[in-house]
C-alpha cells in the first residue's frame, strides 16, 4: 500500500493520508468497491459454477442442469474415462505440445538469424514477416483443406485426417506469429557475449544452442505456452483436417458432443469441459504475473 507524501494538500487525496478510514467515509471511498467486486466475481464465475454443477449431475441431459448442485455424483467422470474422451485429451496434448515445441525452435532460429546476422534480404524479410503477421493463417482454411487433399495423395501422412498434417499446418503459422516477439527479446542479449564466444572458437551453432537459447529461456517459455494454449483451443483447422472421431482433438470432440442439444450427453460434455479446462486455467493462474507483464509490455511498446 503506497502512502502518498503529505506534501500534496489537494482535497481529493486527503483520504490517502489516513489509511484506516472509518464508517461512512470508508463505505463511500472503498467499501462499495468490495460490494461491486462480489457482483463482478459472481458474473465471472457463474458459468464456471454452472458447468461444474452440470458435470456432477447424474441426469445426463441438459434438462436437469438448471438447478445448481441439486445432486452430486462422479458418475460422469468415470463414464468419461471409458469413452473416447481420454483419446481426445491425448490427441490435444500431443498436437499442442508438438506445435509448441516446433514453434519455439523454428521461431527462435529465425529470430537468431535476424538478430545476429546481417545479410541481404534481412530488412525485406522482417518487413514481409510484419505484413504476413497481419493475416491469420486460418483465413485461408479453404485453401488449406484443398492443399491437404492434394498432399494426401503423395504423402498420406500429410493428408486429411492425420495429426501430423495438422501439426504441420500449425507450424506454418508459427514464423509469422512469433518471430517478432522473439526478435525483440534476442536483441536485448548483448552482442559482446557472442563475440567473446566466437573468439574462444565457438561455432555459430554452439553459440545458438549452447549460449543464446539458454539466455532467452523466459521468452521461449512464454512463446511455447502461448502457442500451446492457442493450439489447444484451435477449432476451425482441426475441424476440417480431422475427420474420424478417434482422431478428434478436444475442441472438435467436445463440440460434437455439445452441438446436439436434445440428445447430447450434456453432463458428459460438462465433465469433459471441466477436465479440459483445468490445465489451461492452472497455467494461467500459475503464469498470471508473466501474462500480465507481457500484455502490458506489448501495450506500452505498441
Amino acid at each position: 500500500m503506497a502512502t502518498k507524501t503529505p506534501k500534496v494538500q489537494a482535497p481529493v487525496l486527503e483520504g490517502a493520508n489516513d489509511v484506516r478510514l472509518k464508517g461512512g467515509r470508508w463505505w463511500g471511498k472503498v467499501g462499495w468497491k468490495h460490494v461491486l467486486a462480489v457482483f463482478i466475481i459472481a458474473y465471472a464465475i457463474f458459468p464456471l459454477l454452472y458447468v461444474l454443477s452440470a458435470s456432477l449431475s447424474p441426469g445426463g441431459t441438459l434438462t436437469g442442469s438448471a438447478r445448481l448442485f441439486s445432486e452430486i455424483s462422479l458418475v460422469n467422470y468415470s463414464e468419461l474415462m471409458d469413452g473416447r474422451f481420454p483419446k481426445w485429451m491425448l490427441n490435444s496434448l500431443v498436437v499442442s505440445s508438438a506445435s509448441a515445441i516446433g514453434t519455439v525452435v523454428m521461431g527462435a532460429a529465425a529470430a537468431y538469424a535476424f538478430s545476429r546476422f546481417r545479410f541481404s534480404g534481412r530488412r525485406g524479410g522482417l518487413t514481409a514477416l510484419l505484413i504476413i503477421q497481419m493475416f491469420p493463417q486460418m483465413l485461408a482454411f479453404v485453401a488449406i483443406f484443398l492443399l491437404l487433399l492434394t498432399l494426401g495423395d503423395v504423402f498420406p501422412q500429410l493428408g486429411i485426417g492425420s495429426h501430423l498434417a495438422l501439426i504441420a499446418v500449425y507450424l506454418g503459422g508459427a514464423l509469422g506469429a512469433n518471430t517478432f516477439l522473439m526478435y525483440g527479446f534476442f536483441n536485448t542479449i548483448p552482442r559482446d557475449l557472442d563475440e567473446a564466444a566466437k573468439i574462444d572458437g565457438a561455432t555459430h551453432a554452439q553459440i545458438f544452442w549452447g549460449m543464446i537459447m539458454r539466455l532467452v529461456t523466459p521468452i521461449l517459455a512464454v512463446v511455447g505456452l502461448l502457442s500451446f494454449v492457442s493450439t489447444y483451443g484451435e477449432f476451425i483447422l482441426a475441424r476440417i483436417v480431422l475427420n474420424r472421431p478417434d482422431t478428434y482433438t478436444l475442441a472438435v470432440g467436445l463440440y460434437v458432443w455439445a452441438s446436439d442439444e436434445r440428445n447430447a450427453p450434456w453432463s458428459l460434455f460438462a465433465a469433459g469441459a471441466v477436465i479440459a479446462a483445468i490445465p489451461i486455467i492452472a497455467l494461467f493462474i500459475y503464469l498470471q504475473k508473466y501474462i500480465v507483464a507481457g500484455l502490458t509490455a506489448g501495450s506500452v511498446k505498441g
Binding site: A37, I40, I41, A44, I45, P47, L48, Y50, V51, A54, L62, S65, V229, Y232, G233, F235, A251, L254, Y255, A258, S259, E261, W266, F269, A270, A273, A276, A277, I280, I281, L283, F284, I285, Q288
Partner: peptide, 21 residues
C-alpha cells in the same frame, strides 16, 4: 485472479457452455 477466470477458461468451451445455458 477471480476477474480473469473467464479469460483463462478456453474460449471454445465457454461458447459451448453458454449455448447450453
Amino acid at each position: 485472479a477471480m476477474f480473469i477466470l473467464p479469460y483463462a477458461f478456453p474460449g471454445f468451451l465457454a461458447a459451448l457452455v453458454w449455448k447450453g445455458m
